Simulated scan of single mutants.
Amino acid sequence: MPDASSPAPLVEVRGVNKYFGEHHVLKDIDMEVARGEVVIVIGPSGSGKSTLCRAINRLETINSGDIIIDGQRLPDEGKALARLRSEVGMVFQAFNLFAHKTVLENVTLAPIQVKKIPKAKAVERAMELLTRVGVEAHANKLPSQLSGGQQQRVAIARTLAMDPKLMLLDEPTSALDPEMINEVLDVMIALAQSGMTMIVVTHEMGFARKAADRVVFMADGAIVEEAPPETFFTDPSSDRAKDFLSKILH
Rank of each mutant, 00 (worst) to 15 (best):
G43F: 03
G43I: 10
P44G: 13
G46Q: 05
S47I: 07
G48N: 06
G48F: 11
S50Y: 09
T51A: 13
T51V: 13
T51L: 12
L52Q: 02
R54H: 12
R54I: 06
R54M: 07
A55L: 02
I56K: 00
N57M: 08
R58S: 03
E60Q: 08
T61V: 07
T61I: 03
T61E: 06
T61N: 09
G65C: 04
I67M: 00
I68E: 00
I68F: 00
I68W: 00
I69Q: 00
D70Y: 00
Q72R: 01
Q72K: 00
P75E: 06
P75C: 01
P75A: 00
P75L: 02
D76L: 02
E77I: 02
G78I: 08
K79T: 05
K79N: 10
A80Q: 10
A80H: 10
L81R: 03
A82L: 13
R83Q: 11
L84C: 13
L84N: 01
L84Q: 15
E87H: 12
V88R: 01
V88K: 01
G89T: 04
G89D: 09
V91M: 10
F92M: 11
F92D: 05
Q93P: 05
Q93L: 10
Q93D: 09
N96H: 15
N96S: 04
N96I: 12
N96G: 03
L97V: 06
A99V: 06
A99W: 07
A99S: 11
H100G: 08
H100V: 12
H100A: 14
V103P: 11
V103H: 04
L104H: 07
N106F: 05
N106I: 10
T108K: 14
L109C: 14
P111G: 15
P111L: 11
Q113C: 13
V114C: 09
K116R: 14
K116L: 12
I117C: 13
I117K: 14
P118S: 12
K119L: 15
K121Y: 12
K121L: 15
K121T: 15
A122G: 14
V123F: 14
V123S: 14
E124K: 07
E124T: 04
A126N: 06
A126Y: 03
M127F: 11
M127Q: 12
E128D: 11
E128G: 10
E128P: 04
E128V: 09
L129S: 10
T131D: 13
V133R: 10
G134A: 02
E136L: 07
A137L: 09
H138Y: 08
H138N: 05
A139W: 08
A139N: 04
A139P: 09
A139L: 06
N140H: 14
N140D: 10
L142I: 02
L142T: 08
S144A: 10
S144R: 12
S144D: 07
S144P: 03
Q145A: 15
Q145C: 08
L146Q: 07
L146E: 08
L146R: 09
Q150P: 07
Q150H: 13
Q150S: 14
Q151I: 04
Q151P: 08
Q152V: 02
Q152D: 02
I156E: 01
I156K: 04
